[in-house]
Computed example of a mutant assay.
Amino acid sequence: MNVQSLAGHSAAPPRKLRIAVFNRTFSPTGGGAERYSIALVEQLSARHEMHVFAQEADHHWPGVTYHRVSTPMRKPRWVNQLWFATVTWWATRRGFDVVHSHENTWHGEVQTVHVLPVKYNLFHARSGVRLVLRWIKVVTSPRLLAYLGLERARYATRPGRQVVVTSESLRPIMAQSYPGCAAAVSVITPGITMPDLPVSVAQKRAARIGLGLPMEGTCLLFVGNDYRKKGLEALLHALVKLPDDVVLAVVGNAAHVAEFRAMAVTLGVDGRVFFLGALKDVRPAYEAANCLIHPTLEDTFAMVVLEAMAHGLPVVVSGPRYCGISGMLQDGIDALILDAPRDANRLAEVLQVLLEQKSLQNTLSQGAASFAMNYQWREIALQQEAVYFSAITAKEKAA
C-alpha cells in the first residue's frame, strides 16, 4: 500500500502518543476494516509510537511495533474473541496513552465500529412473539451471550470512551442500539490515496496480463470477502444477460470460490468469470477493470467503492438501505445506485445501459474521481488523531 505520510504535515501534534491498536488480523487481504486500520497506523506512525496487537499480521512498516497475540484455538470463534480481548487487556493495562480497538473488546478508549452491532442484528424490528423467541435463542446460546456481553461493555459510558463509526448511516443505528454512547459517537470514514489518473492503456494492459485476464472486452470487477453478502450471486445471474465479451473478475476470500464457480458453471458463464482470490494489493485489479459492481446486501461503508472511485472507475452500488457510502453519492453523477440489489434482471439492465453509453461512463468516471479526492488518508488520519486527544482530555478531566 502506497500511503503518503503525515510526517511533513505543518501542524505538529501537541505531543507524541504511545498508541495500542487491536486487530485480530492485521493484513491487507483481511478486508476493508483491516485495510482501514492499516492505513491509519501507517499514517499516524509518522507522528506517534504505534503498537499493533494481532493474532495474524502480514504487514511491515517502519516505526510500527508488532505484538503477536497467541491463538490457543481458532474455533469456536466466540471463545477466541474472549481470549483475544482478555490477552490484549492484560498487555495494555498500563504504558499506553490510548488503546484503540477495532475488535469487540471491553477495553480501549477508542472503539471503531465497522459492522452492525450484534444487538441490532438480533433484535431490530422484532416484537411480540418474535422478540420472545429471539431472547430464548440468545439466553440458550453461550456464543450470543458472549458477543452481546462484550459489545455491551465495549459501548458502556466511561471517562475518555470514544466510539468511531465509519459512516453517517451507522450513527443512528448505534444510538438506537446503545443510547448511552450516542454523545461519544463520531464519524471517520475510510479514505484513499489518489493514484495518478487517468490509468493509461499500457497500465491497463499490464494489469490484465499480470492477473491473467483477457486483453480485449469489458471487465467488470467485484471485490469482497463474503461473496454471498456482497451480492455475487445476483451479479453472476446478470452476467448471463450481458454480451459475451463482458467478463467478470472476482477478488476476495478464496474459501468461497468452489461454491460460486459451480454456480457460474450452472449458469454457463464459467469461461467469463475469473476468480483471483485475495490480493495483497488490489490496485492492479482496479487498473485492469472498466467498472466496479458492488450489489452488496450489507455494508456499513464499502471501502472498495471508494477505492474504485479513486481509480476513476464507474461504480454500480447498492442503495443507502444496504450500503453506507451510497448515502453520500448522487445517482447518475458519481455512481449508479441499485434500489434492489437482489434483482438480477434489473442489475443486468443497469449494466447494459452503462456499457452502451460512453458518455455515461465518462460522467461517472469524472464524478467518481472528484468525489474520492475529498477522502484522502492524510486528512482522515488527522481526524483520528483528534479523537485520540479528545479521549485523553476527557480522561484527564475525570481523574
Rank of each mutant, 00 (worst) to 15 (best):
L236E: 08
N253S: 13
A302P: 05
M328L: 14
R261P: 00
G271H: 14
F274C: 07
A255K: 15
C291V: 01
N253V: 03
N253Q: 13
D299G: 06
M309K: 01
G324F: 02
G312Y: 05
A310Y: 09
T300W: 05
M328C: 08
S326H: 02
L242Y: 11
V273S: 08
V315Q: 02
F260N: 06
P314L: 03
A335Q: 04
C323V: 01
P320I: 02
L306K: 03
I325A: 03
G252R: 07
K241Y: 00
V305E: 03
L248G: 05
L329Q: 00
L329A: 04
A278T: 13
P314I: 04
A262L: 13
L267E: 10
L306R: 01
D331G: 12
K280T: 14
A264P: 11
A285P: 09
I325K: 01
L297Y: 13
P295F: 07
V282C: 08
V304R: 03
R283G: 07
T266S: 15
G327L: 04
H256I: 00
D270Y: 11
L267S: 12
A262P: 00
V305N: 06
I333W: 00
I293G: 01
A249I: 05
T266V: 13
T300E: 09
V265T: 14
E233C: 11
R283L: 02
H256M: 12
L239K: 10
K241G: 00
V246S: 08
E307R: 06
D270V: 12
D331K: 06
S318C: 01
L279K: 11
H256P: 00
D331L: 07
L279G: 10
V247W: 03
L313Y: 08
L235G: 03
F274K: 12
P295G: 11
G312M: 02
L236M: 11
T296M: 04
V251R: 05
V304F: 01
L336R: 06
A288F: 07
N290V: 05
C323E: 05
V317F: 04
D299I: 03
T300F: 03
Y322Q: 10
L292E: 03
A308D: 09
K280H: 15
Y286R: 03
V265F: 06
R272I: 06
D299C: 04
G312K: 02
S318Y: 01
S326D: 07
G268C: 13
V316C: 11
Y286N: 07
A238M: 09
F301K: 00
D245K: 13
A264T: 05
E233K: 14
E287C: 13
V282P: 08
L239S: 09
L329E: 02
F260E: 06
E233H: 14
Y322N: 09
M309R: 04
M328H: 11
S318R: 00
L239Q: 10
M263S: 14
V273Y: 09
L236H: 10
V240I: 13
M328K: 11
M263D: 11
V316P: 07
A289K: 05
H294C: 06
V247N: 12
G324I: 05
M263A: 15
Y322L: 01
L239P: 10
E233P: 13
P243D: 10
